[in-house]
Design a protein around this nucleic acid. Sequence first.
DNA 1: TTGTAAGCGTTATCAA
DNA 2: TTGATAACGCTTACAA
Lengths: 349, 349
Amino acid sequence: MATIRDVAKTAGVSIATVSRVFNGNTAVNEDTALQVWAAASALDYWPNGAARSLTTNRTSTLGVLLPDLYGDFFSEVIRGIDQLAKREKYQTLVSGSHASVEDVLAATRAMRGRIDGLVMMAPDSITVESVARIRRRLPVVLISPPFAVDGCSSVSIASFSGARAAVAHLVGLGHREIAMVAGPAGNVDAEERLRGYRRGLLEAGIQPRDEFVVQGDFRESSGYAAAAALLDRRPRPTAVFAANDCMAIGLMSALGNAGLSVPHDVAVVGFDNITMAQYMRPPLTTVHVDAYALGQKAVRLMLDTLADPEGGKVTVQTIDVILKVRSSCGARPAVATNTPAGPETNQQR
Amino acid sequence: MATIRDVAKTAGVSIATVSRVFNGNTAVNEDTALQVWAAASALDYWPNGAARSLTTNRTSTLGVLLPDLYGDFFSEVIRGIDQLAKREKYQTLVSGSHASVEDVLAATRAMRGRIDGLVMMAPDSITVESVARIRRRLPVVLISPPFAVDGCSSVSIASFSGARAAVAHLVGLGHREIAMVAGPAGNVDAEERLRGYRRGLLEAGIQPRDEFVVQGDFRESSGYAAAAALLDRRPRPTAVFAANDCMAIGLMSALGNAGLSVPHDVAVVGFDNITMAQYMRPPLTTVHVDAYALGQKAVRLMLDTLADPEGGKVTVQTIDVILKVRSSCGARPAVATNTPAGPETNQQR
DNA sequence: TTGTAAGCGTTATCAA
DNA sequence: TTGATAACGCTTACAA
């Protein structure tokens, strides 16, 4: 494997000159540069990134830590991260499935010296605990943190307001017995959605009832299971708000099997607007979250931090959500026609 | 930031000893080791990966190059890769969206010195062209290559046999006018599926007709657009095989809008079995591809290569597919009941 | 404009 | 069992 020294020898210059040519910041005689390029391509020379970052203390790589890599939502977040990072000449070192503080620390430690900053999704207090130690050595940007962390910029999802809007919409359709399939305890988005649900009810003058809230875990199977529990309640709920689409889909599937029609017997609203939502029969009303933008914003904040490391400027952003009304809640979309001209466009960028 | 030297000083030993303690291969006096551990944790010392890989020539990182990061299929591949890599103490440097040879080379070059090997999805001859040059410096494992590449292990999808089985199934249901929405030209899986479709017809004594094949691009919108073209054909096809699920879904959506019923008027079969397929109404019959296993196998092959770099053992694997019969093709599942007990389990591992 | 040489933080080879 | 010290491949003062 050719090194900078080989190139220097072949081109008849010093290694410093080769380095200058490759970095393009210092002036180099044009002829000399041509010789260097020629030698480099003759030897098929590729600079060694590890060696480079050892001296420069920069890696052009962003670490990405996610709780999981499963499903549409995370995959969109990653895509957003990757795309912007790539455009800004950064690479991404990805790692999924981190449950404990030790997991997170181990993963981060393994990245030491290989990344310039860490973008981390830390939706519960368990994972976010590790951040304090990491923060001392690396810039960290958090996605959906349960609380503000010193010195970390972050992007959150407007879960509270989204949930409130979803409930308000159901109320507007005349529903009073509105149940919820909640997300995992400790997860900040799950809890914010639950809080938004309760607030939405209160604002409509409806007293939230504990027995109308069934605990789920964001997975489809827990939505499926929730149906049985909710159908036993008296009065029986006429509408259900699920803390995410996966659970809403499981729920709809169970309702169908129980011989109930959505939205006629039970209205259903989800959260996230994953691709699948629009293809459900009936199409799922849900709160749209732009996961791609979420990933992009996180990277943007990281780039800002990296550009001004001592600035200590901390930005806390929230990504807005919007209720996407489809027919699973019994309302008709604003468009008059019943047969749309084509599939809804995906959020391809 | 504490370095090995700081630890050595604090522990009152040489840097060599610290290194030995951290790598655990050479014998070190137990008391000395304890001192080193104490010093290291007091200083919160994390070894620098770049420095380490500069001397060892190993990075414990795998590069992953994908054409795109969009959708269920790729996300499952990544998950398979990440999970196995992680279990084997490797990190993953991911990069998506590579269209041209230059793109691929640039991305790979940027990884130089940061990865031990490259797992690359190269479904067309354009992307695979770059491999020869990369192969000289790095072990490469290919996913779905259009042809065998010297010195590269690879995993392919059994696209041909899957397509043939899909068509055979339609034939078995009595269909004779079977159309196809093909994938992008140049993509090996698209072409194998087309070949399998033709073979399936021939084996049933049906002459394939060019006008029954509509070109798509693997995206939903192209499936949607294909419907119009196919409905114009005379005789009108009674069944359509789409080269992937996204296009099948777009197609179904268009058929519905045209007032046609699936499977009564037109039977539809897809390919991939993405999560959404089971939730379509009617649920989509499709050829199941275990994308998670695909990713895992690729990593396994890479680890084999890495374990025996000079061995030059090249393994070419194919991942089997299986027809998943649901109701979009008009057949009933083997199970007697019409209302399954729960959602189909996802391929969570 | 170019070259020399001193690091960067490790591991690995020798001696001791 | 330990310690000096020479790499590893690069960037970057500083000097020429």
